[in-house]
């Protein structure tokens, strides 16, 4: 497995969690001041949904690369990444159906928290990836001979 990729996805997960924490705090303040106690719980639920479901993609790629021994062209990798994607949407759908009529959830606050959480995680992804460097696995001329000399 490429160590640079490992670092990138771990960093995305770490920074994404920090950002979600910040969004949860701001969401709780705004929700609490505008709607009351239901606003606070809705902001927490919305941010948690955004964090878990966007973070699952990065986590599934990490797990997939480990399972396939670092190879992208393997059934295990795409099975884990795309299977995780499918499972995630089914679980998200079920959670949203269960939550939408709960008396302790304000749907507008939850919706706004999800949108801010998802867009925020995209910003984190782009920032981490543009600042990262991933090497190309090309054998340099003479590398084979240098290895055989050892």
């Amino acid at each position: 497995m490429n160590p640079a990729n490992n670092r990138i996805f771990t960093r995305i997960l770490r920074l994404g969690s920090l950002l979600a924490l910040g969004i949860a705090v701001v969401g709780c303040l705004v929700g609490g001041l505008t709607v009351g106690a239901t606003g606070v719980t809705s902001a927490l639920v919305g941010t948690a949904l955004a964090l878990v479901f966007t973070g699952m993609t990065a986590a599934s790629i990490l797990i997939g690369l480990r399972a396939s021994g670092g190879s992208l062209l393997s059934g295990a990798f795409f099975g884990i990444v795309l299977g995780g994607w499918l499972l995630k949407f089914i679980v998200f759908l079920v959670i949203v159906v269960l939550l939408k009529d709960q008396p302790w959830v304000n749907t507008l606050v939850m919706f706004l928290s999800i949108v801010v959480g998802v867009v925020g995680s995209l910003v984190v992804d782009v920032v981490v990836i543009t600042r990262s460097r991933v090497g190309i696995d090309v054998a340099l001329p003479g590398a084979e001979r240098a290895n055989s000399d050892k």
Binding site: N2, N5, I8, I61, S71, L72, S132, V134, G135, I136
Partner: peptide, 9 residues
Amino acid sequence: QGRLTVLMY
């Protein structure tokens, strides 16, 4: 492959 994995993500 390394770069493409990140771009796919």
